[in-house]
């Protein structure tokens, strides 16, 4: 069975998704303070890695990467509510791109599986 990544259209589609997703995140005042002062291009590349992973594309991300990469944000107060916002933006990004509901659910469940690593517990 092909992955959501392939069904979306691979790397080019993920590029488009990153722009939509990142705009939603930056526009959300509940979470955008975690993105202040970061290099936007590097951040976009990280988000591309994240979207590639949650859609089942080629990646080598591990739970340890997610944990290490967010530790400084946990110190800043990152919690479940912020994580929920991100999932919500991910869901609406995929919906905007016309991804079928069952595939969105699959992606969200993969993203959900990183919650404890991201929140370092």
């Amino acid at each position: 069975m092909s992955t959501v990544y392939e069904q979306l259209g691979g790397e080019a589609a993920i590029n488009a998704a990153v722009d939509i997703f990142y705009r939603k995140v930056l526009a959300d005042h509940y979470v955008n303070r975690f993105f202040e002062g970061v290099d936007m291009e590097k951040q976009a590349a990280k988000q591309k890695g994240f979207l590639t992973m949650v859609t089942g594309g080629p990646n080598n991300y591990t739970g340890k990467d997610m944990r290490e990469g967010h530790k400084h944000l946990v110190k800043m107060g990152l919690n479940d509510a912020h994580f929920d916002h991100i999932l919500c933006h991910l869901r609406s990004t995929l919906a905007e791109l016309g991804v079928a509901q069952d595939l969105i659910d699959t992606v969200i469940s993969v993203a959900e599986s990183t919650r404890d690593d991201v929140l370092d517990r």
């Binding site: 990280k46 591309k48 890695g49 594309g57 080629p58 990646n59």
Partner: peptide, 10 residues
């Protein structure tokens, strides 16, 4: 390097 799959650009 990080993702080793052409995504993260590290």
């Amino acid at each position: 390097s990080s993702c080793q799959s052409g995504a993260c650009q590290t």
